[in-house]
């Protein structure tokens, strides 16, 4: 029994979606088109003219050690943040789902961090990780020089991952909790009657049934870490030390807006866009299709 709304005039549906199409055109296709154009030219910042240079911008970025370092940094950050955020969120959701004491309150508290803007988080964590005054300064009090994000690239990256994961945990938590609550109770009750303890039920029933949520979150977290990490990096490390935290989006900003190399930055944005599209395609083609349990 299929119900379908039909329009008498073929024009009306187009008119109805027109505002949406316009918005997408103005804020996505147009800038993307411009970026493509710039990526193949050398653009003078003050608009004095541009010249066609073919693939030169791409050759230069692929031939630059700094660019590949930013790709590595982005991957480290994206996978580190996603793994940590998913793991912690899953644990928290499992606990809340078991109705530990005051879980209603915890639930609200755990959703809040997602509403905080990245630069604000950056400021807060800058204090937390401050080598002389922050929480981590106790490390330095015990072993001088043990914690030095200003010069040690690993420390700086760790600091970013912790801050990034802290924010994503909240987002992931919401999805995991919803996923857990949609698992049919009879399954869990049956397992309990068969003598499975809480840990066993988590391992054999709840976590496997969460697989679709899990894969959805992996893709979302990775994409988010690639594109939304800018605020944290800008406030906490500015890409340093020695490019150790210069992720791809930050390099685009630094080269394009600070350095006024619009063409090089446009070429980098195109590569990044390709990467994010690839991730999304993987999600739609493989993950979504194979992960149907019910």
């Amino acid at each position: 029994m299929e119900r379908r709304a039909t329009f008498r005039s073929p024009l009306l549906p187009w008119l109805l979606v027109l505002p949406q199409l316009l918005i997408i055109f103005v804020f996505f296709y147009w800038p993307t088109g411009e970026a493509f154009h710039w990526a193949f030219t050398l653009e003078q910042p003050w608009g004095g003219g541009r010249q066609w240079v073919g693939w030169q911008n791409f050759q230069e970025i692929f031939g630059s050690a700094a660019y590949w370092s930013s790709v590595r940094t982005s991957l480290t950050y994206a996978f580190g943040t996603s793994a940590l955020a998913i793991l912690i969120a899953l644990l928290l959701a499992l606990f809340i789902d078991r109705e530990v004491r005051a879980s209603r309150g915890w639930r609200v508290a755990l959703i809040w961090p997602y509403a905080i803007a990245a630069p604000a988080i950056g400021m807060i964590f800058r204090f937390v990780f401050d080598p002389r005054a922050g929480v981590f300064s106790t490390l330095n009090a015990l072993w001088p020089g043990a914690w030095d994000p200003a010069l040690n690239g690993t420390h700086a990256m760790l600091m970013l991952i912790l801050a990034g994961a802290w924010q994503l945990v909240a987002y992931n938590f919401v999805f995991f909790l919803a996923g857990l609550q949609s698992i049919p109770r009879p399954l869990i009750e049956a397992a309990a009657m068969d003598g499975a303890g809480p840990l066993r039920r988590m391992r054999d029933i709840q976590v496997p049934l969460l697989a679709p949520t899990f894969f959805f979150l992996v893709v979302i977290n990775l994409t988010d870490s690639f594109t939304n990490s800018f605020g944290l990096v800008d406030i906490m490390t500015a890409g340093g030390p020695a490019r150790a935290t210069e992720i791809m989006v930050y390099k685009i900003y630094a080269d394009g807006f600070k350095g006024l190399d619009y063409s090089g930055a446009a070429a980098q944005s195109i590569v990044l866009m390709g990467l994010v599209i690839l991730l999304t395609v993987i999600q739609f083609r493989f993950v979504e299709r194979k992960m149907h349990y019910r």
Binding site: P241, A242, K258
Partner: peptide, 21 residues
Amino acid sequence: GNLTQFRAAYANEMQAAFAGQ
């Protein structure tokens, strides 16, 4: 030209040297 980017490169190279890389 491109002095802003040169200054960024300076910072990165100095950090690498001071960190012992």
